[in-house]
Amino acid sequence: MSLLLQCLVDAILLGGLYSLMAIGLSLGFGVTRIINFAHGEMIMFGAYGAYFASILLGVDPLLSLPVVAVLVAAASALLFKGLIEKVLDAPHINQILLLFGIGLVLQNVAAILWTGDARSVSTPYALTAFEFDTLLVPHGRVIAFVTAAILIVALFCWLHFSELGRATRAVAENGQAATLMGINVSRMYMISFGINAALGSATGAISAFLLTVTPFMGFHMLVKAFAIVVLGGLGSVPGTILGAFALAFAETWVSYYVPDGSGWAEGVSFVVLLCVLIIRPKGILGQAVAVH
C-alpha cells in the first residue's frame, strides 16, 4: 500500500516536469506547424544558464529562471528571424533537418564552451524531503512541480486573456484567416517561437537542480517530449498535460512493479506511443490538425 502511494506521488511529481518539458514543443507545432527539433537544446541552454548563475553569481536557479528564460527567448526569436523563417513554406523534411542541424550546432557549441562534464546545482532544497511516515516527498520535486504549474497556468491565461495570446491562438487555428483579420502572422510566429523556447529553458532551469546537466541532455528529453506530445495531441495544451501525466504514470508504475522495470520503462512508453498513433493518431485531445 505504502509503495503504491509512493508510486502515485512520484508519478505526479514527474508529470509536472514532463508537462513543462513538452508544452513548448506542442504549442510551437500548433502555431508554426514546425516541430522544433532543437527544443532539447533550448532546455539544455536554460539548464546551463541556471547552473552558471548559481555557481558564478550565487543566484538560486528559481530566481535566475525568469532572466534565463527571457534571454533564451530573445536569442530564439533572433534565430527564428534569421534562419527558421526561411523554411516555413518548405517541405517538412527540410524544416526537420534545419532544426536538427541547429540542434547539432548548439550541442557542440555547448560542448566546446563548457566541456562535456556533467554538472548539477546542489541547492539546499534539492537534497531534502518531507517525510510522512514512510512516504517520501522530495522538496526539490515539489518546487519543480509548483514552478511548472505556475508557468503553465500563466501560459494558459496569456493564451486566453491577452490580445497577443488570442492572436496566437487565431494563428494556430487558421493562419490565412488570421492574416485576413490583420494579424501580423510572421511576427506572431516569432513571438510564439520565443515563448516556446522560454518554456523549454524554464524546464532546463528546474533540471539544473533536479537532474544532471550535460551538453547532450537535450536529445533524450526531446524524444520523451515527442512521445508526450503525440500522446496528448499535437498543438493541444490540455492534451499535452494529459499526455505528460499518462507517460509519467506508465513509466513510474513499470519502474515500481515490473522486474528490471526501470530499464523497461522507456520502452513501454514507446509501445504506448505506437498504440496511440495506431488507434488515435490525433492523440488523446488532438484538435483538427492537418495530418501533413
Binding site: H92, A227, L234, E266, G267, F270, P281, H292
Partner: peptide
C-alpha cells in the same frame, strides 16, 4: 500495416519510436 494511414509527421515519429523501442529491447 500497423501505421495504416499515418502520414507526414506522425509516421516520422512512429518510426522514431520504433527505433528507440528496439534499442530498449536490445539493451534489455
Amino acid at each position: 500495416v500497423i501505421t495504416g494511414r499515418l502520414r507526414g509527421i506522425f509516421f516520422a515519429i512512429a518510426m522514431l519510436a520504433l527505433s528507440e523501442g528496439l534499442r530498449v529491447i536490445a539493451v534489455m
